[in-house]
Design a protein around this nucleic acid. Structure first.
Lengths: 138, 138
DNA sequence: TGTAGGGTCTCTAGGGACTAGAGGTTCAAG
DNA sequence: CTTGAACCTCTAGTCCCTAGAGACCCTACA
């Protein structure tokens, strides 16, 4: 039986975050000691690892809830799990594409201003003021 | 003199967002009509365009405040503007790198599970449960 | 057995950047 | 002059935590 602090160290999830997950129903409420402190078993250690990993991959709490629900019903079809992961994948791809456009723009802006002039002639400021300076869409 | 709605249409910034920017001090409080409605001049139209563009590029409100401050003092050195933009650029690059690692992982997970099986054997669920399945760091 | 100190408890509030809604007022067109 | 869209303020909600206050518990050591 692990205390919340030990669970935290094992999983890398901060103590208040664990309590938060319990509050929003992502992690089941654990047993308590006579003194009202939480004590976790190995199943909950594993589950929190699952949550952590999914969060690291950017899944929302809601999506993780759905995935956990599936885990608890191993006889169900995994179409849903697949759909959730695919949605997440396309989200990630969209974000990458968008960030790459920003990167291009920012790189261009910063290389043209070496930070040696004065605000009045600053290319960074001018670029931000006028979208027409941009070479890509964003 | 533009109403808040017209300003919104011209810049693509939503009405409540414009009020929010005023509240947090990003946009100066404009003149008002006798009936207490906001009226904006061309300078504020331009400024909101600047803000919009910077937000689109992912700059924080705080960073934008600093940039606006520089705009208002055209005699100052633009070292700060340059530094802000460079920080933003490296933030964006970090995010891209991270998302690309996630993409690899998610792509792998989803291609190995076609959604035809049952949750018990689902590769998506298994991968999330056990970090050891992963091929990249994240 | 007493005590020190770190860990834990609940509760509330804050953060960033908005977004939504309620309930009331003003403006401009017809 | 009337209608109805646009505007006003204020509060609360979103997401996913994070921080703090004030009180209680647990364990190791003397």
């Amino acid at each position: 039986m692990l205390s919340i602090g030990t669970l935290s160290k094992r999983t890398g999830v901060k103590v208040p975050t664990i309590r938060y997950y319990e509050q929003v129903g992502l992690l089941a409420a654990p047993e308590r000691t006579d003194g009202n402190q939480r004590r976790y078993g190995p199943a909950q250690l594993e589950r929190l690892g699952f949550i952590r990993h999914a969060r690291d991959l950017g899944f929302s709490i809601e999506a993780i809830s759905a995935l956990i629900d599936l885990q608890d019903h191993p006889d169900r079809s995994c179409v849903t799990a697949n759909a959730i992961a695919r949605t997440q994948l396309s989200d990630v791809r969209e974000k990458i594409a968008r960030l790459q456009r920003l990167e291009t723009e920012l790189a261009r802006i910063t290389t043209r201003c070496e930070g040696q002039g004065v605000a009045q002639n600053c290319y960074v400021l001018a670029s931000l003021a006028d979208h027409g300076f941009c070479e890509t869409e964003h």
